[in-house]
């Protein structure tokens, strides 16, 4: 039912060491597992491809989520989005019968907003109207930062020149994420990544990327759960952005074989996923049976 990777010790053991047992200098994988079992406090869950695929729910996922909630583990839903506000994500999830609260959702837009708030920035927002809702109340006059999401209506010569001048004057460039392109009904279309890359080149700077797979994204998602990275696990269908990103940030990761999963994805990251499961319900069973 589950495929765990604990036979691959070279990949596996560094995880155990990160799981809070360095001080005891324990090199035994078995003891490492025990240390992990004691530690798990929170589960981060990807949305699209993991709980649902477009408007179709992954079979058994709402029930599995309820089982997970009964275990006292904290739960948070994390996703890279540049167009959908939290409100619209929540509407869809509730329509699909998931019991989820708005404050449990953490998106790349949320991450961008908290970065802006932490640093008291006044951003020029290159975002579509549907995403602006998540920035309500943020001061944007006389900008001293640039936030770039997926904004076809703003990716034009005039607006990019304006953003460029703000960054050239020393303002930070913040990218909601750096996807190269995405699939639209009429074919492939450029994502925010190319435009961020162009602005980076023009200004000789590096953007701060806030979405998955960035380390800070996972750490920020855990912040209000009062939970250390090694006490959390991420479940997602994207080997690189969900599982690889989480594991790089010190969390553990479970890959599910739904959504964008393609055969062999679990071998494309190092260290390997802690486990690879058929779908979200099996990932939940794995956590409940093996990790607590």
């Amino acid at each position: 039912m589950f495929r765990t990777h604990n036979t691959q010790k070279n990949h596996w053991r560094p995880n155990e060491i990160e799981a809070g047992v360095q001080e005891t200098n324990i090199r035994s994988a078995a003891v490492g597992v025990m240390a992990m079992r004691q530690a798990l406090k929170a589960v981060l869950i990807d949305l699209s491809g993991t709980l649902h695929i477009e408007d179709t729910v992954v079979s058994g996922a709402p029930e599995a989520l309820s089982r997970l909630r009964e275990s006292q583990l904290a739960v948070k839903f994390v996703t890279n989005t540049t167009k959908e506000s939290k409100r619209s994500l929540l509407d869809r999830l509730q329509r699909l019968n998931f019991s989820i609260q708005e404050q449990e959702i953490f998106t790349s837009l949320t991450a961008a907003r908290s970065l802006v708030e932490q640093r008291s920035l006044r951003p020029l927002l290159l975002l579509e109207d549907s995403a602006l809702e998540d920035f309500t109340g943020i001061e944007t006059s006389n900008p001293n930062a640039v936030v770039v999401g997926l904004a076809p209506n703003h990716f034009n010569y005039q607006t990019l020149n304006k953003a460029f001048r703000v960054v050239l004057d020393g303002a930070p460039l913040i990218a909601v994420h750096k996807a190269r392109y995405y699939k639209r009904k009429d074919g492939l279309a450029l994502g925010p990544g190319p435009f961020v890359t162009g602005l980076e080149y023009a200004t000789d700077t590096h953007a701060t990327v806030v979405g998955k797979p960035e380390k800070t994204f996972f750490l920020q998602a855990l912040r209000d759960l009062n939970c250390k990275p090694e006490e959390a696990i991420m479940i997602g269908d994207d080997a690189r952005d969900d599982v690889g990103g989480a594991q790089n940030a010190g969390l553990r990761g479970i890959l599910v074989k739904t959504g964008k999963y393609r055969a062999g994805d679990e071998n494309k990251i190092s260290p390997l996923p802690l486990a690879t499961c058929a779908d979200f319900p099996q990932a939940v069973d794995y956590i409940l049976e093996q990790l607590i």
């Binding site: 990019l160 460029f164 190269r180 392109y181 450029l190 994502g191 990544g193 190319p194 435009f195 890359t197 162009g198 602005l199 980076e200 080149y201 023009a202």
Partner: peptide, 10 residues
């Protein structure tokens, strides 16, 4: 160059 970089990356 900026638009060249964008297409290169994409």
């Amino acid at each position: 160059g900026v638009y060249m970089k964008a297409l290169e990356y994409a």
